[in-house]
Amino acid sequence: SHLLVVEPEKIYAMPDPTMPDGDVKALTTLCDLADRELVVIIGWAKHIPGFATLSLADQMSLLQSAWMEILVLSIVFRSLPCDDEIVYAEDYVVDEEQARISGLLDLHVAIVPLVRRYKKLRMEKEEFVMLKAIALANSDSMHIENIEAVQKLQDSLHEALQDFEASQHPEDPRRVGKLLMTLPLLRQTATKAVQHFYSIKMQGKVPMHKLFLEMLEAKA
């Protein structure tokens, strides 16, 4: 219930109406959106019970490794009510054809299977907020100082998910496992997304804000 309360407000892509349509515009819009989402994600992480008591270095390590998984999972959750459309933001919904013409097809094709997976599970908002926090705590950063403290955070989030499923889905005792078994595909999708944006950064045609660049470089 705490995670539901601290869930961030909706965010808008606000594509620049003066820019000509095309891949540069689409990618500029997404990079700007991602930069603003990162600020929100960092603020959100601080509200996860147990996160703020980790050392600053460990907080940074977890976020540097999990930020794209958190971003992707948020996009996927917003896209659940749609049919093969990706809801990057409330005002930026892209179908396959639009993705093709705006240079977002690789990203689109990478995200759709994850949307289908969570649709099949009928993932609920409570499950989404817990999985997002679990993705952060379980980010497998190689630079963690206090492994025990991070393990404790993972355990408390895992326990919250188990408690929720025991009370809300007693008919499916394997639901926690089914949800956790989606995490490899989430990581795989996030890895593809990072590679996609890293190659865009290397091409240098799309402006990127400093925080987004900093987080991309941390994954390089």
Binding site: I42, G43, K46, L56, M60, L63, Q64, L211, E214, E217
Partner: peptide
């Protein structure tokens, strides 16, 4: 930490 200035700053901000 110097390399990750913005993340560091945002985490240190109390808001």
């Amino acid at each position: 930490k110097e390399k990750h200035k913005i993340l560091h700053q945002l985490l240190q901000n109390s808001t």
